[in-house]
């Protein structure tokens, strides 16, 4: 079964037609990169996958998005439940003003988990999965703000992983990071693929080509091409994709 199956999705911000007839299938344990020039609709599409756009007034969507075969926009779906399965990491690290430990435990606590042993175990696991453990194991009770940008971003990834989602959505997770932190995040994505399905928005072509199995190229609200990443970066079908990946755009 497909993990994500978006079918004929159209999306409007009031009058503005931001996504035009997008259909995209994502298989389990794959990494899909969304690329395209600024304003083409990548973040809009990503947010649709865990209903983050619901919060924006005046928006409208047609078409459907299935998660493991279930329509996530069906009336009986609980958004909180959906977001436990489809987590998100944002462009800017946004730790809470809490300790490192509590940042990662947060999702578990709001989900009503009280078993402290379980929480502690899950926190440690998640921080390890996020390749952050060695750097924070001695300062779990310190404020998350005491971490570097790259560490904060991995903390946010750990926070997303703590609630055991199936899909992790990442919107430019490394855009604010130095090359070493970026490399760590990329390695991490590669590792996470074993257990999660990942959809990542990135402006960095090399990053898209390094981390993803498939790449979707968006332009002006349309999905121009969606194919194996190797194909997109060696011999894309569409001229417009070629112009974008080779940097001849515009």
């Amino acid at each position: 079964m497909l993990t994500i199956d978006a079918k004929n999705v159209d999306f409007y911000y009031s009058e503005f037609h931001a996504l035009k007839n997008i259909s995209l299938e994502v298989e389990k344990n794959k990494v899909v990169a969304l690329i395209g020039p600024s304003g083409c609709g990548k973040s809009t599409f990503l947010r649709l996958l865990n209903r983050m756009n619901d919060l924006i007034p005046g928006t409208r969507m047609t078409g459907s998005v299935l998660f493991e075969g279930e329509d996530i926009y069906a009336p009986n779906v609980h958004v909180d439940e959906l977001r436990k399965k489809v987590g998100m990491v944002f462009q800017k690290p946004n730790p809470f003003p809490k300790t490192i430990f509590e940042n990662v435990a947060y999702g578990l606590r709001v989900n009503g988990i009280k078993d402290e042993t379980f929480i502690e175990q899950r926190v440690v696991e998640s921080i390890k999965s996020a390749a952050l453990w060695d750097e924070v194991k001695d300062k779990m009770k310190k404020s998350a703000f005491a971490l570097s940008g790259g560490q904060q971003q991995r903390l946010c990834i750990a926070r997303a992983l703590a609630i055991s989602p199936k899909v992790v959505l990442m919107d430019e997770p490394a855009s604010a990071l130095d090359p070493i932190s970026t490399a760590k995040i990329e390695e991490l994505i590669y590792e996470l693929k074993k257990d999660y399905t990942i959809i990542i928005v990135t402006h960095n072509m090399q990053q898209a080509s390094r981390v993803s199995d498939k790449t979707a190229y968006f332009y002006l609200g349309e999905m121009i091409e969606f194919d194996e990443t190797t194909k997109i970066f060696t011999n894309p079908k569409e001229h417009s994709t070629q112009n974008y990946v080779t940097g001849r755009f515009g």
């Binding site: 072509m205 970066f233 011999n235 080779t246």
Partner: peptide, 9 residues
């Protein structure tokens, strides 16, 4: 420059 697509070819 890490060329791609037609540039790489």
């Amino acid at each position: 420059y890490q060329p791609v697509a037609i540039d790489l070819r």
